[in-house]
């Protein structure tokens, strides 16, 4: 091999190797540790925790110690079931509400005059760039007793006493819809903007009412956008921690919060790891949906 060719090969290897090694070290290895931790017992895995690895004899012993004890614990305890179910339900409701608000918005953006569209797009993305914490905090100011919402509604004479929305499930839903709405609008806008409008004219020419044209032409054609948006809202909502913690009440136990509490309050690292693994398993289906929507 000539010198420049050898150099080219080295460069090529370097480009791949550096990020590859980084990810093996800081993504895959930690993940393997979580998996191992999930199958360990609480007493042997308490911090300070050091991995024992001395040859294959210990490896066999190590493997024999792994079990699904924590998974059984999770399955037997109603608390965990309830929190997974509640997370899935709240994430599902968030997705539906975000779709109900996001679809008309994306539709109107796609129908707006061409020179407005880039501006509208930036306007949708901009709030997403401000800190997550700030956006949740803004809602605390609005929803808390005698907050802005109470002030406005009371001032209009619509309510006579505080609504007490903060620390309820409704507040969590509002916060999640608000935080993830751009994730719904962007893919919807992308599919609706590409939609061939002459199809709608054809439908109208053939006698379809606008509603019927929407239901039989626009809606099916925007399905990939709906699926992608739904997955992008649903996935982060399920594992959300900050919103249920700050806006939710004592009865909102979403799984991200359970994991956080197992880890920081109960200091049960193996159980926290098990909760994490099960959360990932729960997310496999929506992730597969997202992948399909991206390919479509």
């Amino acid at each position: 091999m000539s010198a420049p060719a050898a150099f080219a090969a080295r460069w090529s290897r370097l480009v791949v190797a550096v990020p590859y090694l980084w990810l093996l070290l800081f993504f895959l290895t930690p993940f393997a540790i979580v998996l191992r931790m999930a199958m360990s017992d609480a007493d042997t895995a308490l911090p300070p925790y050091a991995p024992h690895f001395e040859g294959f004899a210990t490896l066999r012993e190590f493997i024999s110690k792994l079990d699904f004890e924590n998974f059984r614990l999770l399955a037997d305890d109603a608390l965990y079931w309830d929190s997974y179910l509640q997370s899935l339900r709240l994430a599902g409701q968030t997705t539906l509400i975000a779709l109900a608000i996001g679809y008309p918005l994306a539709y109107a953006m796609a129908a707006a005059p061409r020179h407005w569209r880039p501006v509208l797009l930036v306007l949708v993305v901009l709030p997403f760039w401000t800190s997550f914490l700030i956006r949740v905090y803004a809602w605390i100011g609005i929803l808390r007793p005698e907050g802005l919402l109470d002030m406005v509604l009371g001032g209009l004479g619509l309510t006579s006493e505080p609504l007490r929305l903060l620390n309820t499930e409704a507040a969590v839903l509002i916060g999640m819809v608000y935080s993830y709405l751009p994730f719904m609008v962007l893919p919807l806008y992308a599919t609706l903007e590409k939609l061939d409008r002459s199809l709608l004219e054809a439908a109208a020419d053939l006698g379809a009412t606008p509603v019927r044209a929407f239901l039989t032409v626009t809606l099916p054609l925007s399905l990939p956008g709906i699926l992608a948006g739904a997955a992008l809202v649903f996935i982060p909502s399920v594992g959300e921690f900050v919103i249920p913690d700050l806006l939710g009440g004592p009865d909102t136990v979403m799984i991200g919060k359970v994991l956080w509490n197992e880890f920081f309050s109960n200091r049960d690292w193996p159980l926290a790891s098990t909760v994490a693994i099960v959360l990932l398993i729960v997310l496999v289906l929506p992730l597969a949906l997202l992948q399909r929507a991206r390919l479509a």
Binding site: L23, F31, P236, A276
Partner: peptide, 29 residues
């Protein structure tokens, strides 16, 4: 594997990313 590892953190719940990295940092002390 590489493209999977690049893209996975985009959809990984933050609690899991945080937990797994902490366990690594503790393991190597």
């Amino acid at each position: 594997l590489f493209s999977g590892m690049v893209l996975a953190p985009l959809v990984m719940p933050e609690v899991i990313t945080g937990l797994s990295l902490l366990l690594l940092f503790v393991a190597v002390d």
